[in-house]
Design a protein around this nucleic acid. Structure first.
Lengths: 136, 136
DNA sequence: TGCCTTCAAGACCATTTTTATCCTTTTTAG
DNA sequence: CTAAAAAGGATAAAAATGGTCTTGAAGGCA
């Protein structure tokens, strides 16, 4: 239950691998995909999205590729996960504009809210830099 | 991301409604389904499962229905959720027998593990009795 | 200029999961 | 014996997941 999808896993692995490059270095999609063991075309979609969101820069043509658009220490795990999976919420009633009409009546609401806040706190506290720094 | 399914919601709502009956009282599936606004045939499957797991008792025939098999205070939200959604895990690498071969290499492993533990702690700490007691 | 490299964007598709419904059988009370 | 209820299994539509493919656009270089 409540599992990250492949896309989410790939997104995290992909950006970690990118963050392990020397800063400013432009890496090929094909290289990152191979290193991180991710289907290249799938990773392409994910990185396209990251580029739009300003996490990474993309360069086309010969010598092109991807690089981080800001220091890895300024990108949190939460940002990456939410970018691909959408807002983190253990159930519908705690999403922004959540359609929990029963919100008042919904006695489990606070519980889910607590789960959400705890999770966000953890994921906010982890940066891609920390993850990239770890061995391997 | 990481949302409870309808089935999970129905399961929680359904057992809460059952827990609001006078203890020992046998309630009709059709009544619970109507009160909790859950498709009856869907709730039937959920309750069948709960019966197998020993959360509730079922009685067939005239005058039959469902009742809690143990006090609502002895059923946790975690048990209910896991019964229908499977083990709570924010990603594959933290499930029992988790197939995270990269477990060592997986630098995010501890983070997911922490999220999992926090979530379990919260859900373990809430009983159906508490939820049923709340207004409405 | 033209060609090659690399990412962008959108269409497409198979599989699995979700969210149910329906029908037949079994059990039980009266 | 009959009506009431749940059990159990088959079926199915819709959505999400996990991709692939094709075409286009942009940039470097001879």
């Amino acid at each position: 239950m409540m599992e990250l999808t492949r896309k989410g896993e790939y997104a995290v692995r992909g950006i970690i691998h990118l963050a392990r490059q020397p800063y400013g270095n432009v890496a090929l999609l094909s290289d990152i995909a191979e290193e991180a063991e991710i289907p290249q075309t799938f990773l392409a979609k994910i990185f396209q999205n990251f580029a739009k969101l300003g996490f990474i820069n993309s360069y086309r043509g010969t010598g092109g590729g991807f690089s981080l658009a800001r220091p890895a220490s300024a990108i949190t795990l939460r940002q990456v996960v939410e970018a691909v999976e959408g807002p983190i919420a253990p159930n519908r009633c705690v999403t922004q504009g959540g359609e929990c009409d029963r919100s008042a009546a919904c006695v489990v609401h606070d519980v889910w809210r607590r789960v959400q806040l705890q999770t966000l706190e953890i994921l906010d506290g982890v940066t891609i830099e920390e993850l990239a720094r770890k061995s391997k």
